[in-house]
Design a protein around this nucleic acid. Structure first.
Lengths: 98, 98
DNA sequence: ATTACAATTCGATAACTTTCGAATTAATTT
DNA sequence: AAATTAATTCGAAAGTTATCGAATTGTAAT
């Protein structure tokens, strides 16, 4: 992966609220294996201290960095993490100093 | 690790030039086991397309996020990566969706 | 002692980011 | 059909960041 792409990914995770958003999506994704429920943005909005327009913007940035996938279902938006990318970034970080 | 701290680390890696700086320090660190040489900032400045004041600023941000350690030796500055932190972040990223 | 060099600090500027409220769009419920 | 709800878009304000050139500090070489 080239440096610019990597920097873009880190930038997407560099805002506390956006990172929390990402972590919640990841957690919901994990939980979905047991509950069968998916990650609805509505629920996340309620649990963060920022407004809907801001959440919408943050989600777009995460998706733009390929960190999450989104899918519109009726009037709801569903998100799930891109596991492969997270793994890839994790490996690069861990291997840098090996 | 709490979200704020994590976001700070990602922010430190979110600028392409700063990330390149970090990766170079990591690479120099790795090479040092064979060559015995350490990572001098002077050499890095020459290899990037940004000025010394900017590099100085970037290094401070990396150090401030605990991503690197710095040591002044004479008129030179030596940097090395904080391996433990990189590992820790890598693990969090990889485990999020497991 | 003077010069040269590495790095930092300062002050400025241009660009970008986060966030909001208001308005809008689109889908569902009543 | 009207009202409600989820999400997006827009425009703006406040704050932050990257970068630079000039000036400064501290160390080493001549």
């Amino acid at each position: 992966m080239d440096t610019k792409r990597m920097a873009k990914i880190f930038k997407a995770l560099s805002n506390p609220n956006r990172l929390e958003l990402y972590l919640k999506i990841a957690k919901a994704h994990e939980a979905s294996f047991e509950t069968g429920c998916e990650c609805f943005v509505t629920d996340i909005i309620d649990s963060l201290k920022i407004g809907a327009p801001t959440v919408s913007h943050h989600i777009k940035e995460l998706a733009n960095a390929d960190l999450i996938y989104t899918e519109k279902r009726g009037k709801f938006l569903i998100c799930r993490v891109n596991e492969e990318l997270a793994e890839e970034v994790a490996k690069i970080l861990a291997l840098q100093h090996k």
